[in-house]
Design a binder for these strands. Structure first.
Length: 586
RNA sequence: GCGUUGAUGGUCUAGUGGUAUGACUGUGGCCUUCCAAGCCACAAACCCGGGUUCGAAUCCCGGUCGGCGCACCA
């Protein structure tokens, strides 16, 4: 069993991850989160909220998982997700069908699959790799399509990313943030891609959870006011240049910006924030790197893009977060599609006095002359230059129609105009997290097998046994503390229940376990990553003390029942040193 | 999607044309004392569909799911 199998086997057995629809045989690309998995996932998301929503102030919104066609036409997903592909019947290589017929037609990308097939046949297009015969063109549409409403309905798609729901709310959001850049918005939710052949368990899913932030910034100012916070952090950077040399470099973010490796401070800040987040949820620092997209792999509209990649035993480096400067691409696309201006007005510090050439058509005269067309004529006149207007009769052309305008109908002058601001289309910085991949990576990095001394027993030779333990950070461990009466005796169950209730009132997730020997129960809790165990024994009845056991060190202290919930809370949330919580016992 | 390979309790596994082996886990009980190994009892499985057969978990075909290779991963 490799590490992946060990983690997945444990995840399945202990209620973290289950194959969906298993009762009916299952379907690839879907996973259920069991009791511990859901809790772990929620704790990871909660830390994400703590950083992005509370600390950064990027409020969370929630938009439908189904989107209408226009959204995905504008975003490019309808076109981009339905490339026709042809596979070679000889060598099996797949090619973009429209690219294959580019040389024999002008309109390759506007053809139906049948038309492409016919062109391939008529022009004897063969496989560019091996010269073999090509199969029929077929669509690879990675979006799930559905119908909204009865009958054939209106086309809808399950969203392939949460981002579009935020872009299309730009105007509302801009107003919410009182029209001041920068501002950001976040969404945590499900996205859907109908992958052709999902494998690799939870690494590639058809339904998955994204946590995305869209941060709208002034394109003229991509400095970050709090950059200092991460400026000195040293990260494993795998830059475009580094990839050519196949070397990952440890560089401080400040230096990466100064030397131009990272495009600008704002992006670097968010790389820093991602680094902070991933380590806080328990990703091992030396199994984490940031890889820059190569020029040819980056979407054409992006300026710079970095992926956070995590090293896993089976899959190697797995992309878990993408941090991109998407420029104004999305807002432009939706502005065009919806015919609505998606921009903010930025007031200058000082109004600018601008020399302007101003044309003033006399509408009183234009009106009777051109009737219904006079407004369009005036528009054109206003945009003309002084030279073009300085003639006897001005001839203009609107949609093939000619208009002759006598020059005495207009006046023009050079004027000084006060301009107090300008309209700008913000650029978008987008950190996009794949929560499921992160959750798996956290489990893998937390997973450990340790050899520990076995209990003495003459009949068994081995003096060591394997302890399986998930070393989750306290903050993300699904079960935060186990309450264990040493024996199943009523006099022990009473105080145990009391302690459990006090902990629960404090908001701590407790598992109560009275079944089996104490050693077995410790091991059970090690395996699901419970950081602390409280054991109630007969001494408790005498002096109101219990033992607390630390999962990682297996050390125990004896401490008072009084305020035990505060002690546990401090251990989990405030990084209190375990050894300070009581008297160490051997 | 193509090729290849596998599928037996929760987990790991034995096995056969006549309904299944063992271990671990789990549950209940016993146990005055702390790291899975004590005692008693209990629970729990042949991936799905079709075919051959008196009878199929076993043989054959198809599917599903998993692994691997190829392709795909905006």
């Amino acid at each position: 069993m490799d590490r992946y199998e060990q983690v997945i086997e444990l995840a399945k057995r202990r209620g973290f991850l289950w194959n969906s629809f298993e009762l009916y045989g299952g379907t690839a690309g879907f996973y259920d989160y069991g009791p511990l998995g859901s809790t772990l996932k929620r704790r990871i998301e909660q830390i994400w909220r703590q950083l992005y929503v509370i600390q950064e102030g990027f409020m969370e919104i929630e938009t439908p998982t189904i989107g209408i066609e226009d959204i995905f036409v504008a975003s490019g997903h309808v076109g981009g997700f339905s490339d026709p592909l042809c596979e070679c019947e000889e060598c099996g290589e797949a090619f973009r069908a429209d690219h294959l017929v580019e040389n024999v037609t002008e309109i390759a990308d506007a053809l139906s699959n049948e038309e492409v097939d016919r062109l391939i046949e008529d022009n004897d297009v063969v496989c560019p790799e091996c010269g073999g015969i090509l199969g029929k063109a077929h669509e690879f549409n990675l979006m799930f399509k559905t119908a909204i409403g009865p009958g054939s309905g209106r086309a809808g798609y399950l969203r392939p990313e949460t981002a579009q729901g935020m872009f299309v709310n730009f105007q509302r959001l801009s107003r919410y943030y009182r029209e001041k850049l920068p501002f950001g918005v976040t969404q945590i939710g499900k996205s859907y891609r109908n992958e052709i052949s999902p494998r690799q368990g939870v690494i590639r899913l058809r339904e998955f959870t994204q946590a995305e932030a869209e941060i709208f910034v002034d394109p003229g100012n991509k400095d970050h006011p709090n950059f200092r916070k991460f400026a000195d952090d040293i990260l494993n950077l795998y830059s475009e240049e580094g990839q050519q040399r196949r070397t990952v470099e440890k560089i401080a973010l400040k230096d990466a910006v100064d030397s131009g490796i990272i495009a600008h401070e704002f992006l670097a800040y968010h790389i820093g924030l991602t680094n902070h987040f991933l380590q806080r949820v328990g990703i091992t620092a030396d199994k984490l790197r940031f890889r820059q997209h190569m020029k040819d792999e980056m979407a054409h509209y992006a300026i710079d893009c970095w992926d956070a990649e995590i090293k896993t035993e089976r899959f190697g480096w797995v992309e878990v977060v993408g941090i991109a400067d998407r420029t104004d691409y999305d807002l432009n696309a939706h502005a065009k599609m919806s015919n609505t201006e998606l921009a903010v007005y930025r007031e200058y510090d000082e109004p600018k006095m601008i020399e302007q050439f101003v044309v003033k058509p006399d509408m009183g005269k234009l009106g009777p002359l051109f009737k219904g067309r006079s407004k369009a004529v005036a528009e054109v006149l206003r945009s003309m230059s002084r030279d073009a207007l300085d003639v006897e009769e001005i001839t203009i052309n609107i949609e093939g129609e000619e208009f002759i305008v006598p020059s005495d109908i207009i006046t023009y002058s050079q004027e000084t105009v006060k301009v107090s601001g300008e309209t700008i289309i913000p650029h978008v910085i987008e950190p996009s997290y794949g929560i499921d991949r992160i959750l798996y990576s956290v489990m893998e990095h937390a997973f450990g097998e340790e050899m520990v001394p076995a209990k003495e027993d003459d009949e068994i030779d081995a003096n060591e046994e394997t302890r399986t333990v998930l070393k989750f950070r306290g903050e993300i461990a699904p079960v935060q503390v186990a309450v264990l009466p040493l024996l199943t005796k009523n006099e022990l169950i009473g105080p145990a229940t009391g302690i459990m209730n006090a902990l629960r009132e404090k908001g701590i997730l407790v598992s109560y376990d009275a079944s089996g020997t104490i050693g077995r129960r410790y091991r059970r809790n090690d395996e699901i990553g419970t950081p602390y165990s409280i054991t109630i024994d007969f001494e408790t009845l005498e002096d109101n003390t219990v033992t607390i056991r630390d999962r990682n060190s297996m050390h125990q202290v004896r401490t008072s029942i009084e305020n035990i919930e505060e002690v546990i809370s401090d251990l989990i949330y405030k990084n209190r040193d375990f050894e300070t919580t009581g008297i160490r016992i051997e």
